[in-house]
Design a protein around this nucleic acid. Structure first.
Lengths: 209, 209
DNA sequence: TAGATTGTTAATCGATTAACAATC
DNA sequence: TAGATTGTTAATCGATTAACAATC
């Protein structure tokens, strides 16, 4: 059954299911039960079945889920049955690593536009992609119809860049800068800050270093 | 009041509070009310007060929280009132970017050991840190007393590396490889996979690219 | 058929928040 | 004092899970 409002937390788990299924697909697995997928991911099988039930009935009693088919469905649901062009703002060490990152391939994403505000970088090329002047964000993003951007600039520049991106029509931002961004409600933001992730673990470490 | 079991979701928010407070501290702010901190972070003020109340009474009616003091308390609670040495396994583009990353400074973390299994990289130095043979994990990690590791190797190698790290005494892993790791219950793992984060947003993007 | 697993319900469990007495 | 904000309670809201009829 679709049409109900799907909780955000359910959506946030689907990419993990998809990732595990694609891994199993590469292993040659054709059918998988919720139980097995759940064990692999460290969640409960009921949760997987419930999550999927928001979108339809994809399984078969007695056997489980066709791996190929469920992958296609999940890609469709998550709208990664296409390739999204992305803009990357900030070509420092991290930005460069992201441009070289192989992991976007076949996952629905492609970095297609690079921006930086450093005159010494503007005009240079990385992987055949020219680094553009950040002042051209408002011109080039709409021109390319880009909806997703990655922010990899220093923290003090991040909010300004986000404002520019939103004005230019960006609807989703992956933010590597260690600040919480203020954006309009229609814009989604996901945060990646290694320090935050590390600080979420040290609380649980018993001894003293 | 302490002594109750603190929910994991509460712990996961404390680093965000800390980050925002340190930002305000740099701005010269001395006192902050839960209301203002909440607005900055896009959460409710009741949530911030409740979260903090798990650990003590840090505020003052009528005015709010002393920024400096709350920062110290949060650092103590999160055990980042010290500097944790970390091992980094996998010195590719991403690993290199992490070694150069300035953001760990003053946040409680320091990359102190590098590992790779590529003979051409072993022995080379990055930022005065020598890249060690991954086969030395079991020897060097206990020797250094390292409890935290970052995994930045290709996905097919990640589980094996994690097993090695756990055997060597690592208690917390920041995993950049796009797989779910199987680790014993006493080991904490945090995941960073840009693809997963991006796929959590595309669902909400209305149009077709 | 016999065995297995789904999709779904209802109960449980846990997190959020509105509200306010306490108090600075 | 008057105004503001905390810490906490109780109610609300939402997510998880155990269990099982349906069915492949």
């Amino acid at each position: 059954m679709a049409a109900r409002e799907v909780p955000n937390i359910v959506i946030s788990r689907l990419p993990l299911y998809l990732r595990a299924l694609e891994f199993m697909q590469r292993e040659g697995k054709q059918v998988v039960a919720s139980r097995e997928l759940a064990e692999r991911l460290g969640v409960s099988s009921a949760q997987i079945r419930k999550d999927l039930s928001y979108f339809g009935e994809f399984g078969k009693q007695g056997s489980g889920y066709q791996v190929d088919h469920l992958i296609l469905e999940l890609k469709r649901i998550l709208k990664v049955d296409r390739e999204w062009d992305m803009a990357l703002v900030g070509v420092g060490d991290l930005g460069r690593a992201l441009v070289h990152y192989e992991g976007f391939k076949g996952k629905g994403f492609c970095i297609s536009l690079l921006f930086d505000n450093n005159p010494e970088k503007i005009g240079a090329k990385i992987n055949d992609l020219e680094i553009m002047d950040s002042r051209l964000i408002s011109e080039l993003i709409p021109k390319w119809g880009i909806k997703i951007a990655i922010i990899a600039v220093p923290p003090q520049e991040a909010q300004g860049v986000a404002d520019e991106l939103v004005k230019a029509g960006v609807l989703a931002i992956l933010n590597y800068a260690p600040i919480t961004l203020k954006v309009p409600k229609h814009v989604k933001v996901q945060y990646i800050d290694p320090v935050v992730h590390l600080q979420r673990m040290t609380y649980y470490i018993g001894g003293n270093n």
